[in-house]
Design a protein around this nucleic acid. Structure first.
Lengths: 147, 147
DNA sequence: TTGCGTGCAAAGGTTTTGCATGGCA
DNA sequence: TGCCATGCAAAACCTTTGCACGCAA
């Protein structure tokens, strides 16, 4: 699993940058600029290539929410609160926010899927689509004719 | 919400084409070529624009699985077996297949999310990531050294 | 006739690839 | 020294937009 990889300055700085904002989803562009602002010189291509490795190594999650706008990447802190199986990622289709929820309920679903359908669900990579509480209250408040 | 829309030849043929392969996920490219093979003359741009309308009208589902490769579109047969809330869409991260599962278990999750987190889950749009039974047996069966 | 739909071409954006150079071990 | 990593530029993609023409109502 651990393929030989050099610990280059770019790799170190990038991992440090990602780890400094755990639980925050960023586009490649944002990572690129964020590192620049911290004084790290890195090329866009390298950001892509390092992200690929970090995702494969399980240190970073990749979310694809829209085909345009690009993917989102998020550092996973294995030791603290994220990456736990009890972590939901919910995307509100109304306001577009990506929300973290923590709840053990998903374990039930996970067990059920495995036992009854043989499907090993990975909650960390799954994004649940729907409408968040805030938006729902807005929508409910106004009786929409159609939809 | 029902905006005036002309019933053009392209609209009619496209809806007919999509409806002829219910439950099948296709890229824009595949729809474009599929229609061409059936003798429908349609432009790529029109495919995009009609898809946009069909998705908004709830006749077609849109899935974004990877940022490259493009989105997938699928006709929803409201009267028969699909689009039911009990329909799971599972993406196997090993073989890449998109699998349909039907199960009422998701209703439990839906209720829980709404009651405890105020999040109105839309199972039809949600894609569950994980590993399918077939791939799991391969992985478990053979102790892979690397990878 | 009115106004939306169509389709070509061009632009916009993200992601990948080729290749010479640079850096880690 | 050997080999991988880097980064620039260019290519490859998917998707959207502008605009003149065509077609439905």
């Amino acid at each position: 699993m651990a393929k030989s990889q050099y610990k280059t300055k770019q790799y170190t700085e990038m991992l440090a940058f990602m780890a400094s904002v755990p639980g925050q989803q960023m586009t490649v562009q944002e990572i690129f600029e964020g590192m620049k602002n911290r004084g790290s010189r890195i090329g866009m291509t390298t950001v892509y290539r390092q992200l690929e490795r970090l995702v494969e190594a399980g240190e970073v999650n990749r979310y694809v929410l829209d085909s345009n706008g690009g993917a989102l990447f998020e550092y996973i802190d294995r030791q603290t609160n994220c990456h736990k199986p009890a972590c939901f990622h919910c995307k509100c289709e109304s306001c577009g926010r990506l929300i973290h929820l923590e709840c053990d309920e998903i374990a039930n679903l996970q067990e059920h899927m495995l036992a009854h359908h043989g499907f090993s669900l990975d909650p960390v990579r799954t994004v649940f689509y729907g409408v968040c509480e805030e938006c729902r209250s807005k929508i409910v408040g106004i009786p929409v004719p159609g939809v």
